[in-house]
Design a protein around this nucleic acid. Structure first.
Lengths: 150, 150
DNA sequence: CTAAGTGCAAAGATTTTGCCTCCTA
DNA sequence: TAGGAGGCAAAATCTTTGCACTTAG
């Protein structure tokens, strides 16, 4: 089951209407496979539905976030959204130079998360975690082009 | 040397003028000892200088950020500023229930960061790192009030 | 002195809201 | 069909910018 299908099931289960606009926004997020800001969601959604309205995108993303089907992540000084990974953990490293996103296997953060719980009683939201930084290609421009890996 | 003094030295070294407004904004950030958003900086700065202008705050914070004397951090869905810690990193845990922010000593993420660099060549932005989750008070409401920590 | 910085006001962005119409369930 | 959702436009915010005046160095 794809994340998009999972999201649809969740929305249906919570009694939300599955309007064409909502499905388009889900598809948009799904195709991009990651972090898009509001204007990017709007722009891309309009490719399949030119009348998509700004207010609809805002309302929909807020709804999705409150339903847990999308996650809002801070990318530097920008707020982005992405479909929540139903498997649970799914981490990304996002390069702030080229914008590329790289998957990070679960496990890398486990020790860290366990420490926070143990020492502070603070339970971090590690299920959908994104960290920004600079990828190898952008850090060493001569060794490879800084192309986008989405 | 306090962070504020450090900041002043840096600014002076880079040839920036030390206007009263800039000093007030530094003091404001310094007194609050932490993450304040633009409107909070403005509001508090006006206590010592009622004519402080919005544009000045924006311009000053941008300047300070570009000079490295303040760091912009994403606190949930809010962008905040704080004096850069000259010791280096200093992280936050933000409770998504009560909104409270807790400092996280450097070191907790070092092993994690080193792994990313070593295994993927990805250099994470740990200076600017905030993790959301649920704090002890909110996770165990009976044991303590969910009060706000800055 | 004089270039940098501020204040003010206006322009631009971004995000939210009201209200009426439309459509999903 | 009835209440939720979308469209549209206006409003509320948030942020940036132009320009004349002030001031730190």
């Amino acid at each position: 089951m794809t994340r998009r299908d999972q999201a649809i099931a969740t929305l249906r289960g919570k009694g939300c209407r599955l309007t064409p606009q909502r499905l388009i926004i889900l598809s948009t997020l799904s195709e991009a496979d990651g972090h898009m800001d509001v204007s990017a969601v709007l722009r891309r959604s309009r490719k399949s539905y030119p009348y998509m309205d700004t207010a609809t995108v805002y309302r929909t993303l807020h709804l999705f976030k409150s339903m847990g089907v999308v996650t809002e992540v801070a990318m530097g000084d920008r707020r982005c959204f992405e479909l929540t990974d139903p498997q649970g953990k799914h981490h990304h490293m996002v390069c702030r130079v080229c914008g590329g996103a790289f998957d990070l296997s679960p496990g890398y953060l486990d020790a860290f998360g366990a420490k926070l719980v143990g020492e502070f009683g603070f339970t971090p939201d590690l299920d959908n975690f994104t960290i920004t930084g600079v990828c190898a290609a952008c850090a060493h421009p001569r060794r490879g082009a800084g192309r986008k890996a989405t």
